[in-house]
Design a protein around this nucleic acid. Structure first.
Lengths: 337, 337
DNA sequence: CGACCTGGTGTTATCGCTAACATCACCGGC
DNA sequence: GCCGGTGATGTTAGCGATAACACCAGGTCG
């Protein structure tokens, strides 16, 4: 009969290698003062026993874990999902485990609760994907002392933050439409309390101002194709609308459908630009010109900012932005004459 | 000057409440033999000190963590992303933290490495989102003893598994097209080594067989809109094609675009059905009839299966399937005469 | 009425690791 | 040739919980 003995511990390795457990610890932590020959013996013993250090024990004595907590909304919105995925990968490569706390709605209480759960786990740091103002408000409750980085949060708060440079992306998109010959560009925006949406409005407006184009009223929507469709139905009826910049690709999709239904051809009658570059954007009808954020870069910056806080405690310049890139496809053309 | 003293420990609470640390432990773990009055005193002390138990210490002595490891691919495919999100929420509600290990490609080595990382963390159980055969193969390497549940994995393996009932969903979708009057239904499938894709092919074929319809060759694609577009370009040229069932919504999107470019109207010339019900499917041109899986239910079943393994060790009937639902919109019509 | 249970509590050992200090052999310099 | 430094290793003391057992008061029961 085979006995289900407990996992091997450091002392087991030590016994097999003929050294003290402390020497094993030194080998594991790459301390310099270990003879090469001893190191090899210990490593062999580790391999033979398939020993793996007990993180709980290590965490107990050092007071630190190798866990990063992420708070994110329970949604499959392309942007946040991509970001999360990219961050998990980056953190994993750096040797950190990532614990994700999902939140149904981005309100103060839910976020505070998720942060508390992470603190209970004694995470080394927390990343909050806080793309709207209620989420950002919740961060005021987070006690200092826990390294914290906000992604897509409030640019006006001095806390460590990484964002996509929304304004620049929106500026480029709008400029591209103006350069194509349009007199002005309409804008279908995301929810007003999302910083991403606000930044895109800002960039759009800046581009119009720069060329002294008239600034039409913002058409407010949420992020859904449904709301884009409703906005599109309205815009399709207005003959003077020849160019629309949408705050994300799904809104653009809704606009495309509305235009199609009303017999307004994209791009010949109306040009449309989106934001996000979702994988299927190239297969919209017509293929969508859009702005692609670099989520992997955002993830890297986020991790970097967190690691800096682990070591330094403070970071000189705690805000980073990542420039997005305009991807030209077939949904933009000169205005009809 | 304020001193950054260490976090309060159980003994601090005990001292404040005038009891032994063991009594504090009993209160925390809801042991019955504690006087009500004592329990209240302890709880007050806990609150006053903002004490939170040290999970590392607990894990050290009990040998168990409250962590569930998930292995998932680093992709934003709608299905896996939704599943992951739903699972994180369900696990969180049940008091478990979820550590996500992302993997770039679903090959044997990567998955084995991710599983090892989770075992290093001594997770209580592991969930592998293993939708293709190479991922499933990798699970053979996982040593017994770690509770493991596979999601979207190989139905022919006897390991604990939860899946969407692909075959039934595909059957319903195909049947719906036949009932609309189509003589047969073409199929654009996902990658052949994905179980989801295989199950959908199977259901599609079963529905055709059931009505003695001719079974056209499968048009193989991957999950992308791009490949759906290529498949669609081919199908659009064949006048006998009047109905297409696509293995997911993005493939359907590509097909819709190809049809549109070739001047074949959907649904009047060709009917199209997808699978997944991505949020924007209702805003495709035309709104897409599709099959909606219940990811939340899959997540619940997955967690349930895992919890059963924690307690029982074994589970009688370790495979669960969740039935999807056909969502009818405007991409299906009777065939042209 | 003493043996025995039982509910409430305290005491001690222990989990597996790291930090700090102790030890010891060996080296070079005066 | 003794002293102090240094490199390699061992010894000991916790980290903060739970588990197991000890203890004690008070009630039950033969």
């Amino acid at each position: 009969m085979e006995k289900t003995s407990r996992d091997p511990a450091m002392t087991d390795v030590a016994r097999l290698a003929g050294v003290s457990h402390q020497t094993v610890s030194r080998v594991l932590n790459n301390h310099p003062n270990v003879r090469e020959q001893t190191r090899l013996r210990v490593k062999a013993a580790i391999k033979e026993l398939d020993y793996r250090p007990n993180r709980a024990a290590r965490a107990l004595v050092t007071g630190k874990t190798q866990l990063i907590g992420v708070v994110a909304q329970n949604s499959t919105l392309y942007g946040p999902a991509s970001l999360l995925s990219a961050f998990e990968e980056a953190a994993g490569e750096a040797g950190f485990a990532v614990s994700v706390g999902r939140v149904k709605v981005l309100d103060r209480d839910s976020i505070a609760a998720a942060v508390e759960r992470h603190r209970d786990q004694r995470v080394a740091g927390i990343v909050v994907i806080a793309p709207n103002s209620s989420a950002a408000d919740a961060l005021a409750d987070v006690p200092a002392g826990v390294p914290l980085v906000t992604v897509d949060g409030d640019p006006d708060r001095p806390t460590p933050l990484v964002t996509v440079d929304q304004a620049t992306g929106a500026f480029d998109a709008t400029k591209h439409l103006i350069d194509a010959g349009h007199e002005t560009v309409w804008h279908v925006s995301g929810p007003a309390d999302w910083f991403d949406a606000a930044g895109r409005v800002e960039g759009w407006r800046a581009a119009l101002d720069a060329t002294s184009a008239e600034v039409p009223p913002v058409v407010a929507a949420d992020w859904s194709a449904a709301s884009g469709y409703r906005a599109g139905q309205m815009l399709a009826r207005m003959p003077e609308v020849t160019a629309v910049f949408c705050s994300n690709d799904h809104l653009a999709l809704g606009v495309l459908r509305a235009m199609s239904e009303r017999g307004r051809n994209v791009p010949h009658d109306v040009s449309v630009v989106g934001f996000d570059d979702v994988p299927e954007a190239a297969y919209f009808i017509p293929p969508l010109t859009t702005v692609r954020p670099d989520f992997a870069a955002v993830a890297r910056e986020t991790l970097g900012l967190l690691l800096e806080q682990f070591s330094d405690g403070e970071t000189a310049r705690p805000q980073r932005t990542v420039a997005p890139k305009l991807v030209k496809r077939d949904s933009v053309a000169p205005p009809p004459r």
